[in-house]
């Protein structure tokens, strides 16, 4: 039986993981930690006084609050033995002003959580979610990537990708650790029913148009949020440590994904991208200039998940497609295979 702490439990992927773990008979207790108030979806979990679920409000990007959290009686009494670290969904570029000790919050969180896990006497497992955008992309509409593929370590990668690379290397450094089992799951674009997109450098965030370089339409690997939760569950119980690619079966071009998720990608000649981003920002868009540059907008990738299948026993169980909603709009949906 596992007793699991989930960070960023108030964000969409964290919420999904909490739900899956809460309904799992092999999980004795789930402690959700988030910066905001408990999401309304947790109300029914919290209503029962004997509930196996508890929620704590604590930012995990500050050293003091993280050490207080891991040393608190709530964590001790709950007998937590595993941590699932869900990275912040907020793009790195948007949070540049909140640099912590010279590090973007996402990187600072990764270091602090890992440090606490390594120093703890009771924690035995850390499952961290990372991004597959850490890979260095070769020229081409689609590249197949395995776990040993080269990472984007060039200093000129965009801040969004750099923050993911930093997190990835932070966790990867402890993969061989004898006393803490570290599992790093590299995720491509995460999608959810209703046309929601997470962890995609261009499409994450609010709906609305985005510019993309004309003449390029990279293939995006997809994974359903429910499959991410299933992969986390598999990683918690597999008794293996390592780095694993996790992805669904489907992959679609960026333009198609944009149209399915109400984020149309407007092809713009490359020299005009900056101007287009400025115009879209004036129109109320959320586009950051540094998110519309870089290889990930020209070259695509898909992930070879054979290792996760072999060692974690994870296979995608949700298919991703487009369906007509009640309002007549066609949008992305996920459904069990």
């Amino acid at each position: 039986m596992r007793r699991v702490l989930v960070t960023h439990a108030d964000e969409p992927i964290g919420r999904r993981i909490v739900k899956v773990l809460f309904h799992d008979r092999d999980v004795a207790h789930v402690l959700g930690v988030g910066e905001g108030p408990a999401p309304r979806g947790f109300d029914r979990f919290l209503a029962d006084p004997d509930s196996r679920f508890a929620y704590l409000r604590s930012p995990v990007s500050r050293h003091r609050s993280v050490s207080d959290l891991f040393g608190s009686s709530r964590v001790r009494d709950a007998g937590i033995d595993a941590v699932v670290h869900v990275p912040s969904h907020q793009p790195a570029a948007a949070s540049q002003r909140r640099l912590l000790a010279g590090l973007p919050p996402r990187t600072a969180e990764a270091r602090l959580v890992l440090q606490q896990c390594v120093e703890s006497d009771t924690l035995r497992t850390l499952v961290a979610l990372g991004s597959a955008y850490v890979y260095r992309l070769q020229a081409g509409n689609s590249n197949r990537l395995v776990e040993s593929s080269e990472l984007a370590l060039s200093p000129d990668v965009v801040p969004e990708v750099r923050s993911w690379v930093d997190c990835d290397m932070t966790f990867r450094a402890e993969v061989g650790s004898g006393r803490l089992r570290v599992v790093l799951l590299r995720l491509p674009t995460v999608v959810a029913s209703g046309g929601y997109v997470y962890l995609n450098p261009l499409l994450s965030g609010r709906g609305g148009a985005r510019p993309r370089p004309m003449g390029f339409d990279p293939v995006c690997a997809l994974v359903a949020d429910k499959d991410v939760a299933r992969a986390v569950r598999a990683a918690l119980f597999a008794e293996r440590s390592g780095v694993y690619n996790v992805a669904g079966v489907e992959s679609v071009p960026l333009s198609v994904l944009g149209s399915w998720t109400r984020r149309p990608c407007v092809p713009v000649p490359a020299p005009m991208l900056g101007i287009a981003a400025g115009l879209l920002r004036l129109a109320g868009g959320q586009v950051q200039l540094d998110r519309i540059s870089g290889a990930h907008l020209r070259y695509g990738f898909t992930l070879d998940t054979a290792r996760a299948e072999r060692e974690l026993g994870f296979r995608p169980a949700y298919r991703i497609g487009v369906a007509t909603a009640g309002d007549g709009e066609r949008r992305l949906e996920t459904a069990p295979i």
Partner: peptide, 11 residues
């Protein structure tokens, strides 16, 4: 084509 979408993983 892979899965439910009209593309395979190489586009």
């Amino acid at each position: 084509a892979d899965g439910d979408v009209p593309y395979d993983r190489f586009g």
